[in-house]
């Protein structure tokens, strides 16, 4: 059976791993390479490195650390942040990343998704989506430039429509970050993820809100068991702060009859 994936996300700023609450007040967690190694050894199924400054500052992610990570870890990893062209993607994949994830640049130029698909294959192309629930309108809206609060803005896309659009253009995986939940550890946005799961034919990764082991069980559970049936659960602060140990989480999920790589 294909296992559900536990995916620690390391937000990177200026070569350090940082974490903020609802995208704000970033604090330094530690150096990239030792943390990557530590997570790989602890049983993480995959890692995401997200340069949260890159899209906003018109920079490409600092390249040297991608190779340094590729040299030491033996699990797949994805690099996100500031990849705006086929050339940007090529250099990061060449340095040893398994996938590249794009978010704001895909919104600015959706054709980039097609170009990346055609050049590197669907399996390399991850689309990150920052989705915010607007309580006034009752709609989920896609936001961009979320790495920088001053530039964060709502786009014209409703989340479900954008999910369909990126799939039609060749996305190989979708990371849905539910902004309302981000960093507050009250659980994934199950309602939204269930809705998106129904229209998402490619692997779907849940992001934003993990705070307890039970939250992972719920997000992985099948739709008929009131779960969101996502393929991977992404989280940052609970792992960085030691709230949840990956080994404990995996043992718990196996007990809950969820397919997990021990």
């Amino acid at each position: 059976m294909l296992a559900k994936r536990i995916i620690p996300c390391l937000d990177v700023r200026d070569g350090k791993v940082v974490k903020g609450v609802q995208f704000r007040n970033h604090e330094i967690i530690g150096d990239i390479v030792p943390l990557a190694e530590q997570y790989a050894k602890a049983g993480a199924d995959e890692l995401v490195f997200y340069d949260i400054t890159a899209s906003s500052d018109q920079r490409v992610v600092d390249k040297s650390w991608v190779t340094r990570i590729a040299k030491v870890i033996d699990i797949p990893f994805c690099v996100a942040g500031g990849i705006k062209s086929v050339e940007d993607a090529r250099s990061i994949l060449e340095m040893g990343a398994d996938k590249i994830s794009i978010n704001s640049p895909a919104l600015a130029n959706p054709d980039l998704i097609n170009q990346l698909h055609d050049r590197f294959g669907q399996q390399c192309v991850v689309i990150g989506i920052d989705s915010f629930y607007n309580a006034d309108t009752g709609k989920y809206q896609v936001y961009q430039f979320t790495g920088d609060e001053k530039r964060t803005q709502q786009t014209g896309w409703e989340t479900a429509d954008w999910v369909k659009e990126v799939q039609s253009r060749g996305a190989g995986e979708i990371v849905l970050n539910c902004m309302n939940q981000d960093g507050v550890r009250k659980g994934y946005d199950i309602e939204q993820l269930r809705a998106i799961r129904r229209i998402c034919k490619v692997p779907l990764i849940a992001s934003g809100g993990a705070g307890a082991m039970q939250h992972f069980a719920t997000v992985f559970n099948p739709l008929e068991q009131h779960g969101a049936d996502v393929d991977g659960g992404l989280a940052a602060s609970v792992f960085h702060k030691g709230v949840i140990e990956i080994a404990d989480l995996k043992a718990y999920l196996i007990e809950q009859h969820i397919e997990i790589r021990p």
Binding site: L2, A3, Q122, K201, G232
Partner: peptide
């Protein structure tokens, strides 16, 4: 019913 591409850890 299953997601494609086949992506992840399998036995």
């Amino acid at each position: 019913t299953l997601r494609l591409p086949h992506m992840g850890w399998n036995q």
